[in-house]
Simulated assay, not measured.
Amino acid sequence: MNHEQQKPVVGFTCGDLNGIGLELILKSLADSRITETCVPVIFASNKSVNFYRKVVPDANFSYQSVKDFTRLNPKQINVFNCWEEEVQITPGQLNEVGGKYAWQSLQQGVQSLKEGHIHALVTAPIHKKNIQSEAFNYSGHTPYLKAVFEVEDVAMIMTAENMRVALLTEHVPVNDIAKFVTKENIVAKLKIVHASLQRDFGIDKPKIAVLGLNPHAGDEGLIGNEEETIIKPAIREAKQHNMLVFGPYSADAFFARGHYEKFDAVLAMYHDQGLIPFKSLAVGEGVNYTAGLPVVRTSPDHGTAFDIAGKGKADHLSFLEATYKAIDILHKRLAYDDMRSNPLRKMSNMIVANAQDEVIREDAE
């Protein structure tokens, strides 16, 4: 995508076919603002889309069926047919069908992203066990994308209006967490988060908080020594790389007292340490963003919700926010890369910003 092509092509994977994925997509795309800001491509099939259109009566938009990306309609919703056969959809049921076609949708969406046919991918929820096969042997979207794009590491960042929480470890059993808490892993994750905050979120000098692993951040070694021997040295090294990193903080007090509001992001040591406060305290709709990839991928911050699938009850606002966040990140990346490649433009923008600040000061006086 360049400055002349302001409407990016955004792909949507359907997730588990018996979950709420397609319902979320249809409800989100019923918002006319979507086609004004991007070119949507649903990776599913006409028949599966039509099945869920009956569940979402308000999704009365027209769409175009495509098998060739050169024929995308920039003013309309496009359905890229990933399969042609009849599929028995049974909303709310966990079965082989749901996982099989979730994989076909994801595989086509990621391949299209890798080949540059689409500019960003928004993934609907999968059932992590149901999608398992010889081709997909991963604990979720994030490790799969890391493998496909052959990057050394990625970071899961949960983002909302008032906070961003990144995870050192993701879907790891609790009794295995400590062995992944190493100085090298923490520094590597901080580098990814720091770079993403600059390029993807437009924050020039981001401040990052790091949580401790143990209760009370170890109480100076009385309750575990990982903070003293691993986390503090990692923070010191990160500072040597010109990162504004602080901690380690005791997780309970850090969130309870609102300290997260003073930082641009928080690095939690494990899944529940970060996601429980995020889902409890986040303002607005939460979005899951995969930092560290050469491409843009977002998703809503919830699962397949089989209990309400096919009933028209699914709340699509997190999915809609994930779509807008993907578009926003694309534009921020474009601006950041343009600034990096054109120092004169950066200097010009700084001069303009300084001039605007001066005008504001004069008006205030």
Rank of each mutant, 00 (worst) to 15 (best):
residue 67 K to V: 13
residue 27 K to L: 08
residue 58 D to K: 04
residue 61 F to T: 03
residue 65 S to C: 13
residue 40 P to V: 05
residue 47 K to V: 04
residue 50 N to W: 00
residue 46 N to I: 00
residue 43 F to A: 05
residue 42 I to C: 05
residue 29 L to N: 12
residue 22 L to E: 04
residue 35 T to P: 08
residue 40 P to C: 07
residue 67 K to F: 06
residue 39 V to N: 09
residue 59 A to W: 01
residue 66 V to Y: 00
residue 32 S to T: 13
residue 54 K to Q: 14
residue 50 N to H: 09
residue 47 K to R: 13
residue 46 N to M: 03
residue 22 L to F: 01
residue 29 L to C: 07
residue 67 K to M: 09
residue 34 I to D: 01
residue 42 I to S: 12
residue 45 S to F: 06
residue 57 P to W: 05
residue 61 F to N: 00
residue 55 V to P: 11
residue 59 A to L: 06
residue 47 K to W: 05
residue 44 A to P: 13
residue 23 E to A: 07
residue 66 V to H: 02
residue 47 K to S: 15
residue 65 S to E: 12
residue 45 S to V: 03
residue 46 N to L: 01
residue 29 L to H: 10
residue 54 K to D: 06
residue 32 S to L: 04
residue 35 T to W: 05
residue 45 S to D: 13
residue 63 Y to H: 15
residue 44 A to F: 07
residue 27 K to F: 07
residue 65 S to Q: 14
residue 26 L to S: 11
residue 55 V to K: 09
residue 22 L to R: 05
residue 29 L to F: 15
residue 67 K to A: 11
residue 61 F to M: 04
residue 58 D to F: 07
residue 61 F to I: 07
residue 28 S to H: 05
residue 28 S to M: 06
residue 44 A to N: 08
residue 38 C to D: 08
residue 36 E to W: 02
residue 26 L to E: 12
residue 29 L to E: 10
residue 20 I to F: 14
residue 20 I to R: 05
residue 55 V to Q: 07
residue 35 T to E: 06
residue 60 N to W: 02
residue 63 Y to A: 04
residue 43 F to R: 08
residue 40 P to N: 11
residue 65 S to P: 01
residue 60 N to H: 11
